[in-house]
């Protein structure tokens, strides 16, 4: 019986989600991007162009049937490199969020539930972290450590968790006052049980919305950092670096910077549309 209810609930959710065209577009973009990144060696027209390959006779070719996105300054197919470049962008988003989301969530749970000194220390730490501009912080960390994109993104992750802490904190403040939590406390449930089994499940939808919105932002920040020169080692394709290199050829070779730039836009847009769609979906449920 309960299984049936769950099924019909999720079916209802999907039905409402699928009635929201922008959300569906977002979902399609995200799924296609992820699949394209995973299957890059099999679906790209010139997979060897992602590695050590040069062909100076075919440099700076405008978009054509052979090269849909044209070729770059050493004659590599830009479409191939854009698809491979998605791998780096998505991997970065994954790395940052896999660190920032769980850590930020736990911090938010602790601060919201225990209050007192725990709350003061954690929330003031988030205030400090939020006062630091992430791009500047990333550049500074990369300058001190090895100037690599991964180090810069770890610096981003070290600031990003604070957003999740604040979100979860504000939700926990409301939830902990609810009667079912008091009931669990009265029954002598452990603090661990209350935090992770009673309170956390009620925050998950909000965290999911925030995470999918974040993915788009993190991809943009990663692209900005590699645009500023913190790219990964050539010849590995990376969207931000492609925009920066291509910009040298503007306006004559517009495709070399514009098309990778539009690709970044699409992926970031996809995650944002998906996040907005999820938010609409869950907001409605909350009201109910």
């Amino acid at each position: 019986m309960s299984d049936l209810t769950a099924l019909s609930n999720s079916y209802q959710n999907w039905y409402r989600f699928s009635r929201n065209p922008t959300a569906v577009i977002g979902l399609i973009i995200v799924v296609v991007s992820i699949l394209a990144a995973i299957l890059a060696p099999h679906i790209t027209p010139y997979p060897d162009h992602a590695g050590a390959f040069v062909d100076f006779r075919n440099r700076h070719q405008p978009p054509s049937w052979d090269h849909w996105f044209g070729t770059d300054n050493v004659g590599r197919d830009i479409l191939t490199r854009v698809i491979f470049g998605l791998r780096v962008s998505l991997l970065l988003a994954f790395v940052v969020l896999i660190i920032a989301v769980p850590f930020g969530t736990i911090m938010g749970l602790l601060a919201g539930y225990f209050g007192g000194w725990t709350e003061i220390v954690i929330m003031r730490l988030t205030d400090i972290a939020l006062a630091l501009p992430p791009l500047i912080m990333a550049l500074a960390v990369a300058a001190v450590l090895e100037p690599s994109l991964m180090n810069a993104m770890l610096a981003i992750a070290s600031l990003w968790w604070t957003w999740h802490t604040r979100l979860v904190y504000s939700m926990v403040r409301q939830i902990r006052a609810l009667e079912y939590v008091e009931a669990a406390e009265t029954l002598g449930a452990s603090k661990f049980h209350i935090l992770f089994r009673e309170i956390l499940p009620n925050c998950v939808s909000a965290i999911a919305v925030k995470t999918s919105l974040d993915a788009g932002f993190v991809i943009l920040v990663g692209a900005s950092l590699s645009f500023l020169g913190l790219g990964i080692q050539p010849p590995t394709p990376d969207l931000g670096t492609m925009v920066a290199d291509g910009a040298q050829g503007l306006p004559d070779y517009w495709w070399e910077s514009m098309l990778p730039g539009v690709s970044i836009l699409f992926v970031a847009l996809g995650f944002n549309l998906l996040g907005d769609g999820l938010r609409d979906l869950f907001d409605v449920e909350d009201v109910r």
Binding site: A52, F53, V54, N73, V74, G229, P234, P235, D245, Q248
Partner: peptide, 16 residues
């Protein structure tokens, strides 16, 4: 030298 396009091109040629 990072950011120098022709040096990157030469280095990619050497790599290939």
């Amino acid at each position: 030298v990072a950011g120098t396009q022709f040096e990157e091109e030469i280095s990619l040629l050497m790599q290939a």
